[in-house]
């Protein structure tokens, strides 16, 4: 089924072929300079990173489970499945890594550090405060930290948002659903 939309891609390849024609050598310096800066050491950095990550997960699983009993095929024990999956993962990681060195692929993506850290910090702060300080302070801290993840709001709308969310959460979760949550410090 998925081959149907793909067939639309075909007309583009003959269009690319004449482009390839004029430069007699496919890989001369000025051409590769237009694709990317200089001679890239890796052809598909994104795939390379993915492959290494997958391999790392597989190796970690194998190392953690190195002493677990595997049993025999007729009576497998707790170490059998982890080792099997770990091996398959290393294999898959090796395929992705190997292919990233051979064929052209996407560059490493840029990361949105600000939203990544802002959101993670806000969630971690909530986790750390909800049990000791209660729901209202935890929500306020989450909204305050989370605000740094995007384009920050001005103080007054931010305060209103925090107050509305804290009140709404208390109303919905504590009064409405009757969840055993601590509200105040």
């Amino acid at each position: 089924m998925s081959s149907l939309p793909l067939s639309d891609l075909h007309p583009s390849s003959p269009a690319a072929a004449p482009h390839h024609g004029p430069s007699t050598e496919p890989r001369d310096a000025p051409r590769s300079g237009t694709e990317s800066d200089g001679q890239p050491p890796v052809r598909a950095p994104q795939d390379l990173a993915a492959g290494l990550l997958i391999t790392a997960f597989g190796l970690t699983a194998l190392w953690l489970g190195r002493d677990w009993p595997t049993g025999t095929l007729a009576s497998v024990q707790s170490g059998f499945f982890p080792r099997m999956i770990g091996l398959l993962m290393v294999l898959a990681g090796a395929v992705v890594t190997g292919r990233s060195l051979l064929s052209q692929g996407a560059a490493l993506p840029s990361l949105g550090w600000r939203p990544l850290f802002g959101v993670t910090a806000a969630v971690l702060a909530f986790a750390g405060t909800v049990e000791f300080l209660g729901l209202v302070p935890a929500v306020l801290i989450l909204v305050g930290l989370g605000n740094l993840a995007g384009r920050p709001l001005r103080p007054v709308p931010l305060a209103l948002l925090g107050a509305a969310l804290a009140a709404g959460c208390v109303a919905l979760f504590v009064w409405g659903l009757g969840l055993p949550l601590r509200v105040w410090p």
Binding site: V119, V123, V130, L142, N147, L153, L161, L165, C169, L181
Partner: peptide, 22 residues
């Protein structure tokens, strides 16, 4: 900017109430 804090709060409380553990 106004919506995502609300969604975050919701995710956090939902996960927390699963077995009241941070």
């Amino acid at each position: 900017g106004y919506l995502f804090p609300a969604i975050l709060v919701f995710c956090c409380i939902g996960t927390y109430t699963l077995n009241s553990s941070g």
